[in-house]
Design a protein around this nucleic acid. Structure first.
Lengths: 221, 221
DNA sequence: CACCCCTTCATCGTATGCGATATGCCCGGG
DNA sequence: CCCGGGCATATCGCATACGATGAAGGGGTG
């Protein structure tokens, strides 16, 4: 039964998988910006592979909603619609509230330590004002939390939604004060997890997402 | 800004898209059962196309989590892990509660009529005991409801989660009494929507998913 | 001078073919 | 009788090549 899970982690990665990982990371990091054109032939030449692995990677990205392709007119990185962001945050609030409640019930000490390690790194990065690593660490925090909830599907949903938020956030400049608030709210979630208090954890997680939503989409209307 | 949305509905469908639709439908209907092997060469011969469109379709299905592929050892329809189903239902409860609440605030009369039409069809199918169309209609119901919430992302999440449930449900025989309960609970959701009562709609939707979860995963442990 | 059509080009979509590799069977040894 | 190694085969992964189609620019005409 766990076999199906391991099967999704291919031991040997095909070239298409490597291209997929590369492009996905580039989109997540903002190296490929929304609306930017992707030329498949050029990409194939640059990476030293043929178009086929490129096409397969692009198809997967399209299924993920990260790129859009119009026939015979190129592939572009998907736009993040500001109006949709509100829906994304609402979904995150629902899912991460659920996740935090479940995690409080069943989180192991090892995973709690892992979460605290991520939190510690975020504090360090904030202290040295090296902000560029913070989005990745923030993703790690939410991913570890979601994994602690015990259901793979919840981790996947969390990852998927947070990626959209990261892509949207690229369009706005870094804001140190916001990161300080994020880290403080993460601390509250961790505190509730330490007490194994599902109700408080869910409340803290929902408040965290809600506050972030206010920060990111309030000025859009 | 809405352009990006329309771009995801390609006007002209490539062969890869047709193969994708075909396979996805076959998996949803249960014609391709979990664990079943998919031979790409054979599929290419049967459909009269080369392997390339097949491969691209399979890559998209893999991104959707509907198939798993191990290198040089074939592609199989993904197993639906019974333990994961509990997580899927928890996620659905969170998302569809949110969806129903939003829908109650902003549903149009036209869309409400659409929802009632689906409900009417389900009643008809139950009356004539033609159960095989009910899963599809049930998907329609939840899809229309999610679209009424106004955020594309919520509709996509709903669709994705419900597809997993449908695939799991294939493994168990049809149960007329269960469909009667489903339809009754749908009616309660519709009633709350008619009154434009977000709180009641959310409560009814959550109760609906929760009851279904009890029905489908209770006997698994 | 403006508009339209036609040609040209760039880019996508797909077929074919070959190399790589995991799987399963068969045979020999313990 | 059971187990391990080697070979045949099926299947996948990728490169090359060609056809199809939308986009853009230039020239001609009203």
């Amino acid at each position: 039964m766990t076999q199906a899970n391991w099967a999704r982690l291919p031991v040997v990665k095909s070239k298409a998988d490597l291209v997929y990982d590369s492009l996905r990371a580039a989109i997540a990091e903002g190296d490929l910006k929304p609306g930017e054109r992707i030329n498949m032939d050029e990409l194939a030449r640059n990476l030293g592979v043929s178009k086929i692995p490129i096409r397969e990677a692009v198809k997967r990205l399209e299924a993920d909603g990260l790129v859009v392709s119009r026939v015979h007119s190129g592939v572009t990185v998907a736009q993040v619609d500001a109006a949709e962001m509100r829906g994304v945050f609402l979904a995150r609030e629902a899912i991460e509230g659920l996740v935090a409640g479940l995690a409080a019930e069943r989180i192991t000490d090892a995973r709690l330590a892992e979460l605290e390690a991520v939190q510690q790194q975020m504090r360090g990065r904030l202290g040295t004002r090296s902000f560029q690593k913070l989005p990745e660490l923030n993703s790690d925090f939410h991913r570890v939390l979601a994994e602690a909830a015990g259901y793979r599907v919840l981790a996947e949903l969390t990852d998927q939604l947070l990626l959209t938020v990261r892509r949207h956030r690229i369009t706005v400049p870094a804001d140190p004060e916001n990161w300080a608030r994020v880290i403080a709210e993460h601390e509250e979630i961790i505190a509730a997890l330490r007490r194994r208090d599902p109700e408080a954890a869910a409340r803290a997680a929902k408040a965290h997402i809600s506050a972030q939503a206010d920060h990111e989409v309030a000025d859009q209307e």
